[in-house]
Computed example of a mutant assay.
Amino acid sequence: MSLDLRIFTEPQQGASYDDQLAIAKATEELGFSAFFRSDHYLAMGGDGLPGPTDSWITLAGLARDTETVRLGTLVSSATFRHPGVLAIQVAQVDQMSGGRVELGLGTGWFGAEHAAYGIPFPDKRFGILEEQLAVVTGLWGTPQGETFSHSGKHYTITDSPALPKPAQDRIPVIVGGAGAKRTPALAARFADEYNQGFPEIDSIGPRIKVIEQALSDAGRSTDSMVLSAALVLAVGQDEAEFTRRAAAIGREPAELREHGVAGTVAEAAERLRDLEKAGISRVYLQVLDMQDLDHLDLVAREVRPQLD
């Protein structure tokens, strides 16, 4: 199978560490390549009980409680952590996992969660993201025994020993967004993967052409970047089961069919094949009902074999 399938969750909507561990272990046991989670501190609708869990603390626990599945964020907000601290945290979790970590990093967008927890939320955040990517990758890439410095508008790093080092030679960095020029250029400069988050299906191909042009402008080959998409998952063995799963996450079946990997097993497989034809090589399946582990089993058992 050439299409890489990953499980992506939204724990801020209401999930304990044990809830996340259960789905991460199911992800691993069922042969999906990675367990990813959002990086949010406030529920987007609903009461969010039992409350948010920090993404990198959670991933540190999962690093010890899983064995083979890759782990990461889609995406961490550049407003939440200073880049030097983020570099230390992610490198440490990578060590704890034996080299299974990936970092998705974005500007942040949800103003209400910043207000709820006293986190500054400046109007202009693209420069912050750009410098964070430069600092984080710069710290990781500095040879042991040398120091790293950075002088920018937002951050100054002076003679850092650039420790600890990740277990991997390079932690994969994921950048995404819908910007016409700046975001693709930033991805071409720093990222190993470019992600389209919940795109309109017919916009995926044109967006790939944009990132391919950015790679060419940066002197990179098009095959040096993983091209991925994140889409909501709602699949049923039959129409009744699909309708039940749609209702469980508060979505309309017709809307899910239009925007997600959704419907019957045959429909889900067809959508995934279409994504691959458009140029996508990795799909993050957004699982919103984290208690429904049978959902993952159905995709692994019935949908995935149709992609071979």
Rank of each mutant, 00 (worst) to 15 (best):
L275N: 08
D274M: 12
E258F: 00
A254I: 02
A269N: 09
A278F: 03
K277E: 15
L272E: 10
A266W: 00
R251K: 14
I249L: 07
A262L: 02
V265T: 07
A262I: 00
A268V: 01
K277W: 09
R273I: 09
G263L: 04
G250D: 11
I280V: 15
D274W: 00
E258R: 02
V261P: 01
E255A: 13
A266K: 14
E267P: 06
A269P: 07
A278R: 14
A266P: 04
I280W: 11
G263F: 02
L275E: 11
E258C: 00
A254H: 03
V265F: 01
I280F: 14
L272W: 01
K277L: 15
A278Y: 01
I280D: 15
A262M: 08
R251P: 02
L275H: 05
I249N: 12
D274S: 10
H259V: 10
A278K: 10
H259E: 15
E252T: 05
A269H: 08
H259G: 10
I280L: 13
V265Q: 09
E255V: 05
R251V: 07
A268N: 09
P253Y: 01
A269V: 09
L256Q: 05
G250W: 06
A269L: 05
V265H: 10
R271S: 11
A268E: 12
R251M: 15
G279M: 13
A254S: 14
G250R: 09
G260K: 06
I249T: 09
R271Q: 14
G279Y: 10
P253E: 03
E255W: 07
A266R: 12
L275I: 07
I280Q: 12
A278Q: 15
G260A: 10
R273F: 00
A268Q: 11
A268H: 11
G250E: 08
L275M: 11
E258A: 12
A269Q: 06
L272M: 09
A266E: 15
V261S: 06
A266S: 15
P253Q: 06
R273Y: 00
K277N: 15
T264I: 10
A268Y: 02
G260L: 03
R257P: 07
A266F: 01
L275G: 07
R271T: 14
R251F: 13
I249F: 09
R271Y: 01
K277H: 13
L275C: 06
I249D: 12
